[in-house]
Design a binder for these strands. Structure first.
Lengths: 333, 333
DNA sequence: GCACAAAATGCAAGCGTTTACAGATTTTCT
DNA sequence: AGAAAATCTGTAAACGCTTGCATTTTGTGC
């Protein structure tokens, strides 16, 4: 690599001022006479000067970069969260370093460490469960962290979520009122805090309270074919209504049922707990717990900007409203 | 922000060597006696020393970061490309700064400039059409650029694509052989080089050569509802077979047809030109030109690593094979 | 025109690394 | 054992910027 072509020093010389003044102009510091500012700006333009953000970062100890940690880029759930984050980040002029961690080449804490080494000003974590090592690393550096669409059982980290328990209970109630009494729950990763400590307990309590018999919990159903292949088991277990955490799995179940000549919602009701595009384009369209994913991302990023500027944040645990949207995969529209 | 807690200097002092030696150990330089190396490593571990990547970047002029430019994060086409990129990037220990540019808060060249200011070692561009200003900026900095899943009419930039003309012609032929003679093409952005200079010309030539009458080109069909709302027009125009560039739009057309009580493929054949998850989960499943998106991303990133290391690259224009996958939205399965 | 405050500018020391180059130490060979 | 070669380690100058502080310039009121 070669030396940078034009530096702040070149501008300073050409404009007959010191580097300090150029720096002030570049950073919009008001302590510069208009006349001087204009002269500097003219030179900047003429020389095509662009500040070196790495050097700025080293000198100022702020990189205007935030890290995003996500399990999988191709999961629309995270893509929609990320979009909300991205828009707000752009607004506040932050760049985004994104790292997906489902790939097992590196362990989570290594990925996070490498992010922190890049001196990101903040991190938004969207994965399922923060490992102890990772949490430790976060605390050691004092880099602010916000969890978006996920929870941690330490209550140390800021988060933006919906009320998963309430949402699931409402969805289960819907199916119960539709006359379904053999309700099941299908989750991807049962170790995820959202599932293990919110959704599944909510389901278990619901079954208990309504005297609906033994829980039917299906775990590790992560993609389309997992869902597709699960369907026969649901039939065998006599399940007539399921709440499914991932919508891609819901679609698998749906298509499997249809291919078997069954009817949705008559034979099986499906409510998907994380609505993306997918849920609304399949037929019958899926009834969903509609999480405000874009907003969750946006709110998380906005909160992060405050934390990065040491501004006051009233409550670091934000719960956004969800909506139970009835479509064709449940009765009683 | 506060000073970094432990620096290379602390390690040096503690291990009774110079910073240079610590630096060598950190960077795996072999010119260090094993004994010294072990001592340094022990101190690094004990002190939890982590190198500051920003300082490394400034000193070495390599940031081990690449920039990704994408129109929209929630478009699965780009998500799947990105996944291929991400995996290879991880393998070569690059971080990824991702910027989406559909958001019109900043113009493309501003976004690119901000990426270049961050001193990324390379860029992968996946958007539709590189503006002149952007191309200029790329050339000015000598930062290597690879286009993935997109083209540029200047032939200056490396690219990884499929043969769009051939693929589309093959798809059109399929429909023609199914007896469809009123063929149309539906594109998102006609200014995209891939559409304007490959797909549409291929379609026009095909219509001409097969004497199929006036071309029916539908442009600016970008999302689900655009597709949904387009269907009546297709009916009015008597179209009985379409090739659609975006699969989300295909699904819109499909659902619109179904909702209107029409039959796919009997009344209308649909071939979607960029197959993601979506195309295979809807029913009837869509016949697709299956682009190897993951591989395209991976190959692009691999090529970029070579360019960043000034290695030889035999051909900077790589064309990967596609596959025409017949599903239920065309006859003759 | 003067004293003083306010505004504008410059000086120079960082920020935490890498990397020529030189110097020191160890190994190899005769 | 001694010289030459090979290996290892240290010195110090970058890298391109920010920023506290000192200094100079400008503006204000009388």
């Amino acid at each position: 690599m070669h030396k940078q072509e034009v530096t702040i020093y070149d501008v300073a010389r050409e404009a007959k001022v010191s580097m300090a003044t150029v720096s002030r102009v570049v950073n919009g510091n008001s302590n510069v006479r208009k006349e001087t500012r204009d002269r500097v700006l003219e030179v900047i333009k003429r020389l095509h000067y662009q500040p070196n953000a790495v050097a700025q970062g080293l000198a100022s100890k702020r990189t205007t970069t935030v890290g995003l940690i996500v399990p999988d880029l191709t999961n629309l759930y995270f893509a929609e969260l990320s979009k909300g984050i991205d828009d707000i980040a752009l607004l506040y002029k932050y760049n985004i370093i994104i790292t997906s961690i489902e790939n097992r080449l590196m362990k989570e804490d290594q990925v996070i460490q490498s992010l922190l080494n890049k001196q990101v000003d903040g991190v938004i974590y969207m994965s399922n469960r923060l490992s102890d090592k990772a949490a430790e690393a976060f605390k050691r550096t004092k880099t602010p962290v916000v969890l978006a669409g996920t929870k941690d059982n330490r209550d140390d980290f800021a988060s933006v979520t919906i009320d998963y328990k309430k949402a699931d209970t409402e969805a289960l109630n819907l199916m119960l009122h539709d006359g379904k009494r053999h309700l099941g729950i299908v989750v991807g990763d049962q170790d995820a805090v959202v599932n293990g400590e919110n959704r599944i307990p909510a389901y278990e309590e619901f079954m208990e309270e309504n005297d609906l018999g033994a829980p039917r919990i299906y775990t590790d159903i992560k993609d389309y074919s997992d869902g597709y292949n699960l369907y026969p088991q649901l039939v065998k277990d006599g399940v007539d209504g399921v709440i499914v955490t991932r919508d891609i799995s819901s679609v698998g179940i749906l298509n499997s049922a249809m291919d078997a000549g069954k009817k949705v919602p008559e034979d099986l009701e499906i409510v998907t707990a994380s609505a993306t595009q997918l849920a609304s384009v399949v037929r019958p369209a899926l009834t969903t717990i509609k999480q405000p994913l874009y907003d969750m991302g946006a709110v998380a990023m906005r909160m992060l900007t405050k934390l990065m500027n040491n501004e006051e944040v009233d409550d670091i645990h934000i719960t956004l409203p969800y909506e139970l949207v009835k479509k064709q995969s449940t009765l009683n529209q």
